[in-house]
Design a protein around this nucleic acid. Structure first.
Length: 176
DNA sequence: ATTTACCGTGCTT
DNA sequence: AAGCACGGTAAAT
């Protein structure tokens, strides 16, 4: 899977971007898929257009489910085992810290989980566990960048931007 | 059982 | 430009 990183703050990332989006069915809910000219930049679960717009301030939006259907179908077909073989590039806009964290998430295999603490150690900021938590929560391409595979060390607590139930469903479906 | 410390980000003032 | 709230975990009170 090709990854195209861009250094950008949340406030600046929509500038001069045209985003094409559509909503499609997925096993754990409806997914809102958004594409730039480079590749997929956003995937939200049961996500509204308002949330998309809020996350890409300054961008121009075009709804076209015909265009996004190809991407959505490929993701559904490859998930979870073969997501790494996605033909569509993954476009990441974030700060240096967020990009480090998100790239680390890409290394987590389907069926396994890691803790926020382990990510913090892997990126060389062992004390930045909370910062990792917020960076994971700001992941823009859910499912493809598997932020749902990061769990609390003390099992039992489940936190997820699209709702704990969705996270549980994703992990259950991926479990070996 | 509550409080404290650690880090990065984004929102509000 | 400064302040505040989040988010995960361990350690001290």
């Amino acid at each position: 899977m090709k990854v195209i990183p861009h250094l950008a703050s949340r406030a600046a990332r929509g500038k001069n971007l045209t985003i094409c989006y559509g909503i499609h069915d997925f096993p754990v809910g409806k997914i809102l898929v958004a594409l730039t000219a480079e590749g997929i930049c956003w995937l939200g679960i049961n996500c509204t257009e308002a949330t998309l717009r809020d996350n890409w301030k300054g961008a121009e939006f075009v709804e076209d489910a015909k265009v996004t259907a190809r991407a959505a179908r490929e993701i559904a077909r490859r998930w979870p085992e073969k997501l790494g073989q996605l033909s569509i590039p993954v476009v990441l806009y974030g700060t240096a810290f967020q990009l480090k964290v998100w790239k680390e998430l890409l290394k987590i295999k389907s069926g396994s989980t890691v803790t926020y603490e382990q990510i913090a150690q892997k990126i060389g900021s062992p004390k930045a566990v909370r910062a990792v938590g917020s960076a994971v929560g700001k992941n823009t391409v859910s499912i493809v960048v598997p932020c749902h595979r990061v769990v609390n060390k003390a099992s039992g607590k489940v936190n997820y931007g699209w709702g704990p139930a969705v996270k549980k469903a994703l992990l259950k479906a991926e479990a070996a």
